[in-house]
Amino acid sequence: MSWLIAILQTLLFVALAPLLAGWLKWCKCCLQNRKAPSLFQPYRDLIKLTKKQPVVAGHASWLFTIAPYIIFSATVLAATVVPLIAVDLPTSASADVIVMVGFFAFARFFLALAGLDIGTAFGGMGSSREMTISSLAEPAMLMAIFTLTMTASTTNLSVAISHVLNEGLVLRPSFVFALFALMLVAIAETGRVPVDNPVTHLELTMIHEAMILEYSGRHLALIEWASQLKLMLYGVLVANIFFPWGIAETFSLQTLGLGLLVILGKLAVLAIFLAVSETLVAKMRMFRVQEYLGFAYLLGLLGMLSHIILETSR
């Protein structure tokens, strides 16, 4: 039973990710006085892409054609770890939050290699920038996560979320710091404004798009889907770690349904926040990202220190 729910949850993750992207786009359009596409436009795009014949550069190697599948599967694996509608699922025990970060690293490794494979300047540029930003983001992310894991004394996400749930509403200064750190990292890792701009193809600003410039057809669909999934994963992480209320702790139809509704609401609100910030903030220069991520790291560190100094009773 619990395995079934785990599989269903993962499928739900995969299925809902384009919807979140559509909702985000819809919010942004409304804020920017543009006519919004349908909420289901990302699904249509994905279907269209899977039906198209992919065009691959003449001298692309096997790595280029296999990379989208690896990227997609690694991201799906990361999704199995994160509790979406229910905690205490068996899949969350097979890998903890550090492994989840590892899955992202896995996907990124192949994405960067694929960017280098064709040998165009754009691909190399994207790979170089992506690896730079991610290597700065990873310590900040782990710092924020360590704060959580030390509070709950576990790296298992499901157990950690149950711990936060059981403690009730306690205002922890460390969590406030960690929340902001994680949000900053999430924006950098998912390639949103102000670190990267997913809607442009301008050579000076591209990071993620530069790497996947040579992809088309089903390959592009997989990569797009994976990045939508990644956005949703970070959203769920923020929502469920810091505001876990509503997530199902028992497996009855009612609680699960409630869990689904609640997480959809939380994600919708988060997306609105993201849309507002993307509308208000301009993309920053590449070499200011280090300051941004340094700030995120500092927040994570402050969270950790306030946990150690203020919250551990000794």
Partner: peptide, 22 residues
Amino acid sequence: ALTAALAAACFVNVFGMIFLGQ
């Protein structure tokens, strides 16, 4: 964590330069 991430960047560079591209 920073070391691990930099190592990944370093070896993407190594593999990419030696084996990929033209």
